[in-house]
């Protein structure tokens, strides 16, 4: 049986209560919204790109401890990363939380605390919500670069 304390770890409770980078970014170069229509959780993710690097990242919105902590930890992990590195992080996180591949935790640093979410199928979407917004924001950002 999945244990509640695997889900609500101290780090998650802390980030849920005091989310980092929790603000609207006025000079964002890319933003996207993540919405879970089932529960109404909603976050905006803001990126300020400096060339290919994520110079700054923030988020704003409302949702549960899991979605908020995941967004908060994500924002910390992304600062200074290149778009490709961010994409790699997204893929790893997805594998760990959605597919339950615990081995991904090693490459995820602090984000590894969200590993336990995989055992709570009803909460997987909470943990991935901000990440989907990030993914959309990154894609939006790269659009002008694609040659058509």
């Amino acid at each position: 049986m999945s244990d509640l304390s695997d889900l609500y770890q101290e780090v998650i409770l802390d980030h849920g209560r005091n989310p980092r980078n929790f603000r609207v970014m006025a000079d964002a170069t890319a933003t996207a919204e993540g919405l879970n229509p089932l529960c109404g959780d909603r976050y905006g993710v803001f990126l300020r790109m400096d060339g290919d690097r994520i110079a700054d990242v923030s988020f704003q919105g409302s949702g549960c401890a899991i979605s908020k902590a995941s967004a908060s930890l994500m924002s910390q992990a992304l600062k200074g990363k290149s778009a490709a590195e961010a994409e790699d992080l997204f893929q790893r996180f997805h594998k760990m939380v959605v597919e339950g591949d615990a081995s991904q935790a090693d490459g995820l640093g602090k984000l590894a605390v969200l590993k336990g979410v995989a055992d709570f199928p009803t909460r997987v979407k909470c943990a991935s919500l901000a990440w989907h917004a990030l993914h959309a924001a990154l894609r939006g950002e790269s659009q002008p670069a694609t040659t058509e």
Binding site: L4, L7, Y8, G16, R17, C39, D41, G63, C64, A65, I66, S67, K68, F120, T122, R123, C126
Partner: peptide
């Protein structure tokens, strides 16, 4: 106060 309904539901 201080807890999202989702977290209440899971607990």
């Amino acid at each position: 106060e201080g807890v999202h309904p989702h977290d209440v539901g899971t607990i």
